[in-house]
Every structure is written in C-alpha cells, then in structure tokens.
Design a binder for these strands. Structure first.
Lengths: 139, 139
DNA sequence: GTGTTTGCAAACTTTTTGCAAACAC
DNA sequence: GTGTTTGCAAAAAGTTTGCAAACAC
C-alpha cells in the first residue's frame, strides 16, 4: 500500500531546478533548465517528477490559463497573473483563514486546499500599454 | 477601433446553451449541446463564440485543471472543484472585497479580477472513497 | 457591397502514457 | 532480484487558426 519512492538523479535535478527559481516556471521552463545539467533527461521524466514532487508536498503548483506553473513555496499564499505576458508574482494571503470550512459547509465538498489567483497587468505591461496608447495618439 | 459584433444564429445558440446549464460545462459540453440544435455548427465556432461572449461579459469562465469551464453567472463568486470527478459547484464570495486593491498595492499589478477555487471531494466522491475503503477492509 | 462570421481541417500547446531497458534498494 | 524509474516516441486532450464560402448589416 505504501508507495516507496526512490531517490534518482533526475528527480533531484527537477527538485533543484524548481527550488532555484522564484518566477513560477512552467514545466517546459524546468525541462530547459534541467537539460543544461543532464542532456539526456526526457520531457516525460520532468513532467512525472514535477507531479510526484507536488504530491509529496515538496513543491506546489498554480493552475493558470496557458498551463500549470510551479512554485518552490508550499505555504498558503495567492498569486497575481499578468493577462498580457503571463508573468506571475506572489500575493498576500486573503485574511480570512476560515475560508475552507465556510466553502465546505456551504457546498458539502470536503475541501483540502484553495487557490486565489488575481488577473491583471504587470508593471512592465502597464508601461507597454501606455506606450502603445501614445503611439496611437501621435499617429 | 470599435469592434462591431454581429448577431448570428450560432452565437445565440452558444449563449443559450451556457445559460441553460448550471453545472459549469466545458467547451466540449457546450459543443455537444449546441449540436443537438444545429447539426452543422463547428467546434471552432463554439470556441470562438465562447471566448467572444466572455469578452463581452455575457458569460464568465473558471480555469481549473483539465481546462476552462463556463458559467452563466457573471457576478463575483468562487468555486469548489472535485479533484476526483471534476464536478464544480458555486461557493460564497470570500468576505474581504478589498482583496484586489490589497493585491495590487502589494505587487504593483493593475488587477482587474480574481478567482478563488477550492479543491476537494464532492459528496458523491466522498461516498465512493468510503466504499472503496470498506472493500479493502473486507478483502 | 463591405466586413464579419462560419465550417472545415490542419496545426498547435501542454501533458500523459506504453513499453523495454536501466536503475535503486 | 524486485519493483520503480527512465527515455523515447506516440498519442491524448484542449484549443487556436488559415482560408474560402456564407452571411449580417
């Protein structure tokens, strides 16, 4: 019944790669990073290990439009996603920490986690938006 | 500059199909529903119209693992997703409605919306889990 | 008539999977 | 030795897109 999990070179590389980044990388990002250390590792192995590491609670992930993003942080916090460039940043936790039990009693679901994602424009894309506006005015 | 949007048979069918369901259907669900009314409508048209209707603010969507789910409700509320069967239910809004400005001031993003998703087991899957447990015990 | 929308099929993106060989314990 | 993990390549799942014909206004 117990799942015995082996310690492999590849697994360690994937974990290290996630821990080394604070920009909420995609699976593909991690694949690219890990490839620089082990030219033979396969995409399938990276995906499998990302999922296993998440199940083990060593890393976490955020579901956003465009795919799954990984996070070395496993504590409870929220995220902001740029709807223009896809950048993700950490955001403070919504103050109310009885959210889960509230949602549970309201729906009958047995809640085990939650995720709050804010959508908006990152600072860089805000600047780009202004620049494009100006370009139009001056055209 | 203004986008002129035409009223087509297909667009109306897609909108009607979303409004007719309260179970947060996938694009494929809507495609299937609409197909019963118009055997010729194409998948591409359904996807295009779901996106256009969402942009217009007539419907909304929730990003969850496994894809995008549509919602006839456009008011601010949260969702619970079953991690076993994918069922989605509505949940009450987190009480704090200054969340956006809090996240904004913390990250520098210009926030336009947010989405809170709870993960857990729906009532039916909770029952199934108990049943499987029992089966093991008696084996 | 003009410009938008459709149907179709192909392409794309992200992720999963079957299998035999390689590896960890 | 036993059972897990890997690499590979194929396939799956979800969604987007190019184009000519059809349609809305």
């Amino acid at each position: 019944m117990e799942v015995r999990r082996r310690h492999t070179h590849q697994r360690q590389l994937v974990l290290d790669a996630v821990l080394a980044r604070s920009d909420h990388p995609t699976a593909e990002d991690i694949f690219t990073d890990v490839r620089t250390k082990d030219a033979k590792i396969s995409r399938g192995t990276v995906y499998r290990n990302l999922n296993l590491l998440e199940e083990s609670g060593l890393i976490s992930s955020v579901h956003v439009p465009g795919g799954n993003r990984f996070d070395w942080r496993t504590d409870d916090h929220s995220h902001v996603v740029c709807t223009s460039c896809g950048a993700i940043a950490d955001a403070p936790l919504p103050s109310d920490n009885q959210l889960d039990s509230l949602a549970s009693s309201h729906t009958g679901y047995k809640i085990s986690s939650h995720s709050t994602v804010f959508y908006g424009l990152c600072p860089a894309c805000q600047r780009d938006a202004v620049r494009n506006q100006d370009a139009h005015k001056h055209a």
